[in-house]
Design a protein around this nucleic acid. Structure first.
Lengths: 208, 208
DNA sequence: TTAATATACGAGTTATCGCTCGGTTATGAT
DNA sequence: ATCATAACCGAGCGATAACTCGTATATTAA
């Protein structure tokens, strides 16, 4: 409980902004953080540089963020949220087969749309409290996927452990794409990758 | 060419050791680096701390390594080499099905045997010259897998693009396991994960 | 034995880091 | 118009980082 709070304090906002201009300040900081990350990398990024590029006093930065990690944790959190919104704000496909195809496609388009930033986030930025608690992405996404799989249980090959299967395919999908983002970004434009990944998941999940 | 050398210089040994004691020094540094990584993380790890823990003068450290990145790049390189040796020094299975099962099993055992170090490497340590050139692991492994797939082409579902398929399954396997290492390490002891991953790959690759 | 080379060393220089704190300015409520 | 509070600011302190360079010691070759 206490330890948990201590940990969380390192990664969340210090105070919640109420006025508009403070929200603008926070946005400026996050935007600057992303630009600094792209130009010099996480290691050499410093709170001073971020504040300077954001056109914000260093004191202001520390009003809202306890440190560098928290800033980048927030950058990542917002990107994850964007992805989650993209996948949710969409007519729910009728069949599992379509769902798989759709989600692979959405995530691929998502990473392609801002490749450099995602590569930098994956590679350079350590993850929020790893092992301590689940990433927001999986925490939100897996239950949703589990529910969908449960609703189509009759089409599934693996009906025994739907919860674990749901987690498994979510992780496999995301991590495989992230691997391409980092190590073979040029192949992300090849439609073959999308085909292979879709086929991989469909064959695994669906009865033939 | 010149740029490439500049980049490489940041990540490779400065000089090749000839005498035994210098090899011992390098090993002490690498071992200390791993321990520092586990205790305080990549960010707060410094060359000074590593040298101190290694019982080596800071000057000696800089005789061999141009900086912190190079030290950890070498730690990772050696871990990758260990894994590669494990998979190669083993009677080659007769069938693709066995091969898949075997490799999933080897890699899982490999990460389980030193979970904390692998988690720290995956999460905290930025990758060597990402995008510039392929990681040694994939550079060595993919051609080998490609050859094996080619030799069993008759059993394959995807015979059109063996090279890309080989790369694809290698990345999918490694990145999925790495995801569990980082985000759900407790599940690595559940045999279900091994089953699911094996099944995923077999269904994708093999004709039924 | 001696010369050449490889290895080891660490005090010290320079730079930057994280972060605080006392104080100013802007905003909204009364 | 007045006041409370939210937001903003940046000089500057203490700590620590990366890395060099002159020097000392060990090893090997001649």
């Amino acid at each position: 409980m206490e330890k948990q709070d201590t940990v969380n304090a390192l990664y969340s906002l210090r105070k919640t902004p109420t006025q508009e201009r403070s929200k603008a300040t926070i946005n400026a900081i996050l935007s600057a953080a992303a630009r600094v990350l792209l130009s010099i990398g996480y290691d050499k990024a410093s709170t001073n540089k971020i504040a300077e590029l954001a056109g914000v006093g260093i004191g202001s930065l520390y009003e809202y963020f306890p440190g560098k990690e928290a800033i980048f944790a927030e950058v990542r959190r917002r990107e994850d949220q964007r992805l989650f919104d993209l996948t949710m704000n969409r007519p729910e496909p009728a069949t599992l087969k379509e769902l798989i195809q759709t989600h692979v496609s959405i995530y691929l388009e998502f990473v392609r749309s801002n490749l450099d930033l995602h590569a930098a986030l994956i590679n350079g930025v350590p993850q929020f409290a790893v092992g301590q608690q689940e990433l927001p992405f999986y925490r939100d996404y897996v239950p949703w996927a589990t529910k969908f799989l449960g609703a189509h249980a009759s089409e599934l090959r693996h009906v025994e452990h739907i919860e674990q299967v749901s987690s498994f395919i979510t992780r496999a999908t995301r991590s495989t794409i992230d691997n391409y983002v980092l190590h073979a970004p040029e192949q992300l434009n090849d439609p073959l990758i999308e085909e292979l990944l879709t086929d991989l998941l469909q064959r695994f999940l669906l009865k033939t």
